[in-house]
């Protein structure tokens, strides 16, 4: 029997975006990361080549993060107190990208200053050759106050700056445009809102190859299906030719899964939850793999074991066997 395999031929493709710049390209990175470029749904190799594999980023903070699960704290140990060492540890663990999150305060509980922020970014850039995503603490005024000097001080590095949100994107986009950086736009789990933010940012003249979108997701058990479907829909719209959804997707299974009770709490939980540390890693891994199936181009993780496991899945999914 001969069967005609149904193959989708899509009119649209995802924008290719390169993070980081080497010395020749005007930066100081020893490695750059290229994502996007898909012309079909995730890993449908029988329809079209997948030009770039999904990338695993590791999340780290400007100082020891307050609310992190004990499982993570035990795993990382003392590097949590030193951003430069932490970044190196991430790289050693196999990260392809570093996401540096700023908290509202420094290690001594003083509010962060633009100077502190710039110094921290520089220290991380020196410690690792990986491309870098820099995210402010999420308060408009502070984000703008630190991200602008960071953008100025690292001109040409093709950092990813964020978060751009609907009510607060102009300053960050302008700083990124002036200094050859990229931006990360985040919208709350809604296809239209994601698209709207992309329209607003490109309307400012920011080229599409400098935007990554974070459509937000939930963790396993905590709304992952919303994020999952929003990502599938965004990717379908992109392939159907909707230019304003044709941007690579970055999501945070690490952040989302490690704030759940399953990952955070080890005692006084039901026996049916099983081993705490292993459960935490399963939670992060299952969340990440599911989102990769839905179209994630970058997953940001927290645990090195999750990184190993997710990477193995990506290896397998990228293996383009003839079918």
């Amino acid at each position: 029997m001969s069967i005609e395999i149904p193959k989708d031929k899509w009119p649209g493709a995802v924008q290719t975006v390169t993070l980081g710049a080497t010395a020749e390209q005007g930066g100081t990175r020893t490695k750059v990361v290229t994502i996007g470029g898909e012309q079909t749904l995730p890993f449908m190799h029988f329809e079209s080549e997948t030009p770039n594999r999904p990338v695993i980023a590791m999340e780290m903070s400007s100082s020891r993060p307050g609310g992190w699960s004990q499982v993570l704290q035990d795993t990382w140990g003392d590097v949590l107190d030193d951003p430069a060492k932490w970044a190196q540890a991430c790289e050693q663990a196999g990260a392809e990208l570093i996401v540096l999150m700023f908290g509202l305060t420094d290690a001594d509980d003083n509010p962060i200053t633009p100077d502190f922020a710039v110094q921290t970014v520089k220290a991380v850039l020196e410690a690792t050759g990986l491309p870098l995503v820099v995210l402010g603490p999420g308060q408009v005024d502070i984000d703008n106050a630190i991200l602008v000097p960071i953008a100025d001080a690292t001109k040409g590095e093709r950092l990813v700056l964020g978060l751009c949100e609907e009510g607060n994107y102009r300053t960050i986009v302008a700083a990124a445009m002036a200094n050859d950086h990229l931006v990360l736009g985040r919208t709350p789990m809604d296809v239209n809102l994601a698209k709207q933010l992309n329209i607003l940012m490109t309307d400012m003249g920011l080229p599409r190859d400098r935007i990554i979108m974070d459509p937000t997701t939930g963790a396993l058990g905590y709304g992952i299906e919303y994020g999952y479907s929003v990502m599938e829909r965004l990717r379908l719209a992109a392939l159907q030719g909707d230019a304003m959804t044709q941007l690579p997707l970055m999501v945070n299974p690490g952040f989302e899964s490690w704030k759940t009770k399953e990952s955070k709490v080890g005692e006084g939980v039901p026996d049916a939850w099983g081993d705490w540390a292993e459960r935490g890693v399963h939670w992060e891994t299952v969340t990440a793999v599911s989102l990769i199936e839905a179209g994630a181009d970058v997953v940001v993780l927290r645990h090195p074991d999750s990184l190993t496991r997710v990477k193995e899945s990506i290896d397998e999914l990228m293996a383009a066997e003839p079918v």
């Binding site: 609907e166 302008a174 709207q196 607003l200």
Partner: peptide, 10 residues
């Protein structure tokens, strides 16, 4: 106004 209805503060 931008397309989101935000007043252009710049």
């Amino acid at each position: 106004l931008d397309k989101g209805g935000n007043i252009n503060e710049t």
